[in-house]
Structure formats: structure tokens, C-alpha cells
Design a protein around this nucleic acid. Structure first.
Lengths: 177, 177
DNA sequence: TTAAACTTTCAAAAAAAAATGAAAGTTTAT
DNA sequence: ATAAACTTTCATTTTTTTTTGAAAGTTTAA
């Protein structure tokens, strides 16, 4: 009886974990992050302790190469770390578990890799020489606005982080609701 | 001479426009929006007046079917509109050009399509029955935190919109910098 | 009602992205 | 120095996503 319960429970946990990993993977691919990368991250996020590459391969049913490359990518993003265990030769991996820290790191990386280059192009195209026709005026106007907008949006997360730790700001904002 | 200048100028404009459309398309695909969809949107954003499907096909060098399906998708997102011109049989298209409005619409759609379902799963998996091992405790704890975090993040844009129109809040925030 | 002028749909093709796995590379203990 | 125990790389294969284009559908004007 007791044993039966334990099995039932274990099943439920495994199912829940699997569901979470799958969902996170699907969400990732909708946001331009590859499925496996998101799944590995999900797995590490909810893992108590560091996980070996072997175990990641086993749990996600993926090849060694795939695991290796995606772990590497996650480390490049700065949201997964290598860990060494005493007396163990192989490497273990953990994820950044503090969600604020995670959000900051992801947004910084995306900013660096995608937003900043886009801003450069926006600045470039919005500064084409003298514009006579209304078509051209509209183009310059719109791309300038876009530049300002993206620039502001790019800074939003920093502002939120600042605000988050500022109790006075929080109280004032509550007042004004 | 004057003619030569005009040609040079036209070239520069076309190049700039093309560069913008290509960049926007690339950015889109990094964010889980298909390239053509993002390119059509870019094209309409910087277009003075409504554009016909024929012209979209021509400018982006894409097939009729591709154009039709992606325009439809953009209209489903609520960021592109059909327009009719007097005496013209065919349909023309325009993009939402107000960037705040655009951001609100995109974030509302993404919230509805992706975040809300993800939240549902997070709530589900974080409420698995009694948890004994530390592994299971950690799972429940972490997914709960994630639920709260995603819920908060999901509301951020509304908050920013509110804040944007609140002059008092803005002044106060500047004080506290 | 008809036919011309359009748009949409969707099965098939093409392109792009991701995954595999075996060989090459690395590290560590002896 | 060597071999065992690992990890990484990358050419090839597989999977997924996107695009095509022709047929079907729709609308409009006469």
C-alpha cells in the first residue's frame, strides 16, 4: 500500500516535470530559441542539483552532439554554469535560478546580439540625404520614430530593475493608481 | 546633372528602404515571427500610402500565396488593415503606424497566444500533490516562482503604458534617479 | 447570369534549422 | 608517455518551417 502510493506519486512528479520541460521548449521555439536549448534550460532550472551531460541526454532523449552544442550555447548566454564535483571526472551543469538575474542576462544578451545591430541600421537608413517627395519624408520620419522607440524599449528592463529595488518609487506608484 | 542627382538620390532611398525591410525581417525571425511576415510589416510601416498585394509581391519578390497568407496573419494580429480605394477593385493594405499602439497589440496577442497557456501549465505542474523529497520540493518551489514571475512580466507592458501617460509619475521618477 | 478581376487555399516542393553520431580533441590519473 | 574517460566538432541526415503556384473561391460590374 505504502509502496503503491510512492509509485503513484513518483509518476505524478515525473509527468509534471516532463510537461514543464515540453512546455518551456515549445515556448522557447515561439520566441526564437531552439527547442532543445529551452528544454535543457527548463530541466536545469527545476533540478535540485547539477546534472551531467549523460543525464540530460537520457532525460531529453537527445544525442551527445546536440546536448553538447546547446549546453555550450546556454553557457554563452551566461545562464548555465559548469560545475565540478570532487572525485568526479565528468562535468555537471546548473542553471541560473534567480529569475530576476535570468531576465537581466537574457535581455542584455538579446540587446547586444539583436537590438544594438538593429539600432545601427535604423540610424543609418533614417539619415539618408535630403528628401524631397512625401514618400521619402515619410520613410525618414517613420524610421526615426522607430529608432527612438527601440532605443527606449531597449532600456526598459534596466529601468524596471532600478524601480524594483526602489521602495519609495513603489509606494508613490501605488498612490497614483 | 540635375537628372543624374535625382537618379543617385532615388537609388539611395531604395537601398535604404530595402535595407530596412531586410533587417526587420531578420529581426523578426530571431523573435519567432516569420521573415516574410516581418518584411511585409516593415514595408507597410514605411509606406506613405496603402499598398496592393501585387506591389507587395513585386517589392519582396514573393508568391501570391505567400503574400496572401502572411497579410492575413498580420491582420489576425491586428497590426495590418485592409483599405479600399474608390473606383479600385483590388484591396490595399496599411500597417499600424503608431508604435505605442503597435507594441500594445503585439504584446496583447503574444500574451493571449503564448503566455496565458504557459501560465496555465505552470500553475498545473506547480500544484502536484504532497511532496516529500527535496527534489520534488525544489520543483514545486521553482515552478511557483516562475508562475509569479511570468504573471508579473505579463503585466509589465500595461504598467508601462499607464506610467507613460502619467506626468506626475514621470517627474517623480526623474527626481529619484 | 456571366465573366473578368481579384483573393484564398492547400498539397507539394524548397529552404532553413536542428539533430545525429562517429571521429577528433582534451583532460586526468597512473 | 599512455590510455581511459570524457567533451567537442562538423559533415550528413532528419525534421520543421516556409514558399510556391495552380485550382477553387469570391466579388463586382454590366
Amino acid at each position: 500500500m505504502c509502496h503503491q502510493n510512492e509509485i503513484t506519486f513518483k509518476m505524478e512528479f515525473k509527468e509534471a516535470k516532463n510537461k514543464f520541460v515540453q512546455t518551456w521548449g515549445a515556448l522557447g521555439s515561439q520566441w526564437g530559441i531552439n527547442k532543445t536549448m529551452a528544454q535543457i534550460h527548463a530541466l536545469l532550472m527545476v533540478s535540485n542539483e547539477a546534472v551531467s551531460m549523460e543525464d540530460i541526454m537520457e532525460e531529453l532523449q537527445i544525442s551527445r552532439g546536440n546536448a553538447s552544442m546547446n549546453i555550450r550555447a546556454l553557457m554563452d548566454w551566461g545562464i548555465v554554469y559548469k560545475e565540478y564535483k570532487a572525485g568526479e571526472r565528468r562535468e555537471f551543469f546548473t542553471a541560473e535560478k534567480d529569475l530576476d538575474e535570468l531576465a537581466v542576462k537574457i535581455s542584455k544578451e538579446r540587446s547586444k546580439r539583436e537590438i544594438k545591430p538593429a539600432l545601427k541600421v535604423l540610424k543609418e537608413v533614417s539619415s539618408i540625404s535630403a528628401n524631397t517627395t512625401s514618400e521619402e519624408k515619410h520613410f525618414v520620419d517613420q524610421t526615426k520614430k522607430l529608432y527612438d522607440f527601440v532605443l527606449k524599449a531597449d532600456n526598459v528592463l534596466d529601468k524596471i530593475t532600478e524601480y524594483k529595488d526602489n521602495w519609495l518609487a513603489q509606494i508613490l506608484m501605488k498612490f497614483m493608481k
